[in-house]
Design a protein around this nucleic acid. Structure first.
Lengths: 305, 305
DNA sequence: CCTTTCACG
DNA sequence: CGTGCAAGG
């Protein structure tokens, strides 16, 4: 991710050469994203029956204090996937444990590293089964993946490792990508998969504000982008981009540094990825850009399953 | 210092056996201290000419945000002694560097330990000389003592090392006490001394709320109290106790834990100590108990020098 | 309880 | 910039 030490040089002679609008005193470098009206049904007219929300909360306890759970209650998803909880299961506040509508809760957190990584999966109905991790000890110690099996599909909640400043952790990240793809393929062989989470990659230039400046930044290296491409080549679909192939400025993450969010200097790092055979069930994928509480915003997938 | 893990068991069957008042729903375990009217002159009628304020700020930058400097400006001392600045000289905010009335500023902070210890001495008039430390490398690395020489006296700003939880650092503390006393005696041989600061000891039972419970607590061990007694036996006077030998509940520190300050469960750890021959010049020693901004309150000494 | 630094993002 | 942590008090 970009450091962006400079204060507000977002429109300078930087990487985006397009002409600045003449009027605005502080032109936005990327247009603000307008979430279109919700598509309540599939193209063939079946209304959605499954609502899954995913949110990188950047610290569950701080997010709770900022009212994150209140928004979730209004959104009322059937499944909620949380990433970067930074919170052991035993430390999840009662306010969340008692959240109406999501009584079945599963938590995974980093072993021996309190306050690092961690994911949660909360469900309205009890899953048939829940598994922790991807079956690879190198990555499973971090608490990054939860998988809930439901009658018609798997819901996978994932927090993909960041490659780090200066790409110091790019190698382990790429090992994760490979192992995770194999994990998803094994699932997909059994039942369709809905993968939700912070995949820590902006796939294409359209998926971040400053693609050229970030060619060597964690989350936009060729290797990480290629990892995502391989996922798509393996029978999975990026639901948002499938529905909105041209949508620009549709980001889910903005660094806290430099007031990036107000300028929509962001990245699309959070995805709802579906098995290709689930596409007929896909109604919509919403990006809740205006929702505060973290440096990521939530996304919500709607399926008729 | 006491841990006080329990919530509000301040009146239980603890160390203070006196009968609890029957009426108050939550009786204060120690009477609140009422600072008496200021004695503006010496007993023989000379008005004060030197005002010295001392304050353990528990983090200079947080203290500034809480308005500490505004209160200092109203108090308008000639010399300001600050302890636990937790701030390198280069990191002192401009707000303080430009504080009207105290243009001559001297800072000392811990070597190789950013955010630990540190003292500051600020003066209205330029000192003849300023020295750093007490001439003992073991202690001088911590940034605990600043000495400013003025025409008629030395002003010493000191932050005496805490003996630590479980008294794990009692031995170095006692070495400091011994070395510091020798340092003060050398000064006193040249000019009278006004020593201000957090001496990290409550001298007598009257100087803390729960003396019996704290016989083995840092700041009230027999060895630390004896160190202070030795100071008094060496020609120095605790100005506050000299003026107010019977004053109870006169504390300058309250742990943040358990709401101790509202209950006046405190300690007198901050002192203005004077060379005995300065007693004739002593007008008053004020304890500004109501002033917020730190877990210590400021004290102010008034002298006619 | 509260401040500082730190690692991480 | 902001989280959760550790050390210190």
């Amino acid at each position: 991710m970009p450091k962006r030490g400079k204060k507000k040089e977002e429109n300078g002679s930087g990487d985006e050469a397009g002409p600045a609008p003449a009027k605005a005193p502080k032109a936005s470098p990327a247009p603000l994203y307008e979430d279109p009206p919700t598509r309540e049904a599939t193209p063939d007219g079946r209304r959605w029956t499954l609502k899954v929300t995913s949110w990188n909360v950047d610290g569950l306890r701080a997010w709770l204090k900022k009212g994150g759970a209140k928004w979730v209650q209004e959104e009322a998803p059937d499944v909620l996937c949380l990433q970067e909880t930074k919170c052991a299961a035993s430390a999840v506040p009662a306010e969340l444990r008692e959240l109406p509508g999501l009584p079945h809760q599963f938590w995974s957190s980093a072993k021996d590293r309190p306050g690092y990584s961690g994911v949660g999966l909360l469900a309205k109905t009890e899953p048939l089964d829940v598994t922790y991790g991807i079956g690879d000890p190198e990555h499973d110690v971090d608490g990054r993946v939860l998988t809930a099996e439901f009658p018609s599909l798997f819901v996978v909640c994932a927090y993909v490792p960041n490659a780090g400043r200066g790409l110091v952790r790019l190698e382990p990240r790429l090992r994760f990508d490979a192992a995770f793809l194999r994990f998803l393929q094994r699932l997909d062989a059994r039942k369709p998969v809905l993968l939700c989470g912070d995949l820590n990659v902006a796939h294409a230039e359209i998926d971040l504000c400053h693609p050229r400046a970030n060619r060597a930044s964690a989350g936009f290296t060729p290797q990480e982008r290629e990892g995502f491409s391989k996922l798509l080549d393996s029978g999975f679909v990026d639901s948002f981009r499938h529905l909105y192939p041209e949508a620009r400025g549709a980001f889910t993450f903005w660094t806290y540094l430099g007031g990036a969010r107000a300028l929509n200097v962001g990245w699309r790092l959070d995805y709802a990825v579906v098995s290709r055979r689930l596409l007929g069930a896909l109604c919509d994928c919403k990006i809740r850009s205006a929702v505060q509480g973290s440096d990521h915003c939530p996304i919500t997938a709607l399926l008729a399953v």
